[in-house]
Design a binder for these strands. Structure first.
Lengths: 259, 259
DNA sequence: ACCGGGAGGTGGGACGTCGGATGTCCGGCG
DNA sequence: CGCCGGACATCCGACGTCCCACCTCCCGGT
């Protein structure tokens, strides 16, 4: 019973300055999340593009009739979703609405798995595998020779980087991004990139070695390009399949070796 | 506009009273985002599962040596990512880390597209199509008769609901979720559900009619089940393909009719 | 045994204040 | 005349304090 010092007075005075808080029982459901919706609606109504300036915190505070604290909490939440971009000393701007929150969420969820790292990572890899198998089938027929040359060039650079002991990971990313560029679907490289980033982050957090045998990876990519050049849809899909089998094996091996 | 002079006096005595220079306290880069990382790390270190209670705001404030405001902003951001679940008057808990942020982000990004609604929605639909084509190929060989019966039952319920003019959308969701349940990949239904939710929300915001012709949708689902029952992998994939062709056509029609 | 109300704890929100970061503008210097 | 640097205005970053809303639990009255 130590600590009854809270003893908040009952405001029996009640005559304090409370201008006229309208007793309107307008709870309005969580001011902060309401502000989030209003800011999003403001962006949509004014048709603001990514990079366009938003009202300052003070303006939002006055326009919406809430405190700056609530405005900042709402903006922080929108910032976490990459819907808003806050720059210190400069202002608040419309964000790119990228898949960054997906990356953060998946990374956290994967790292938070108590049982095994492999299970959660395998789920992500399986989705990437299914996606890329279907994707390679679609682009197999429509790839031009120039695009095939560009893909082969990326593999060449991978080989050079691998020989020099450099980062093959970035080029791997470029390869897959370039492969599906002709589809004109901007979401696809972002989604694949998100999965890829999650994989790299989890691998980094687990302390896995980045790529023990880049030769195998490069070989798989060469196989994919070769099949595509031959307009062999089934072969390309199988090559992609083999590629992922290798990634899964490497992940499983790494998790056994470390975890 | 409204250039109110705030006229705050500038403490030109810069560096007047500062008891001690922070010698070892490094800049620390944005307290708020640092708190986000620390809270996430706390969850990982203590191996807390979803639903487990987190330290109260006051405790975090004291443990991390920051103000309660900063703690709340960090928690708000983590709440937006569904990494944390804040319950008024109850406490803060570890969240599910669901794909809710992806849904919010994709919905916003799609609605914010100035040119056309169809383009952004078509991207999402294409990804769903590619995913489900690959998925149906994988489950086609392993589905048991019981699972096929369950799928057929869902279609029956869809037909009953369609006749009664009820919500076919929910049952549609159930069908696809049930279809891929045997893969044991928890991420797949969540990802498909996320895309599905985005589609419904955008359709709702655009004022599209929910399902003008449920008969066609039901027929496509019957085709899928029939092909699966015959263990016809190619047929199942093509049926799924037709299904999505219908969805795309409906979306294009709705966007023309309204937008 | 039941029920209602209050104490205490937790998040929700509002100000007010100060500090740091950034862009702008203007005046002095070369 | 040109340009370069410092004062200044404006923005976000953070802190402290106060009060309110919501929830749980316990305790005392019925």
């Amino acid at each position: 019973m130590s600590g009854e010092r809270t003893m908040r007075r009952m405001s029996q005075e009640s005559g304090s300055r409370r201008p006229e808080r309208p007793p309107e029982r307008r709870p309005e459901r969580r001011v902060s999340s309401q502000i989030q919706r209003e800011v999003m609606q403001l962006i949509l109504d004014r048709k603001l593009r990514a990079g366009a300036p938003l009202p300052t915190e003070t303006e939002l505070m006055e326009d919406l009739g809430v405190s700056r604290n609530s405005v900042r909490e709402a903006l922080k939440a929108l910032q976490a979703l990459d819907i808003v971009d806050i720059r210190h000393g400069y202002g608040t701007y419309v964000g790119e609405a990228s898949l960054t929150p997906l990356v953060d969420g998946l990374t956290f969820r994967t790292l938070a798995r108590p049982d095994g790292d492999t299970a959660a990572l395998a789920e992500i890899l399986q989705i990437r595998e299914i996606l890329e198998e279907g994707l390679v089938r679609r682009v197999a027929a429509s790839l031009t020779d120039d695009e095939l040359d560009a893909l082969a060039a990326v593999v060449d650079r991978m080989e050079a980087a691998g020989r020099a002991g450099e980062s093959v990971a970035e080029l791997d990313r470029d390869f897959h991004e370039l492969l599906y560029a002709s589809l004109g679907n901007a979401l696809i490289p972002q989604l694949l990139g998100a999965f890829w980033t999650v994989f790299l982050r989890v691998a980094g957090a687990r302390g896995w070695t980045d790529a023990p045998t880049p030769e195998l990876t490069i070989r798989r990519h060469r196989d994919i390009v070769a099949a595509l050049r031959a307009r062999d849809v089934e072969g390309a899909q199988q090559a992609m399949s083999h590629h992922f089998r290798g990634i899964e094996a490497r992940a499983a091996q790494a998790s056994r070796g470390v975890g």
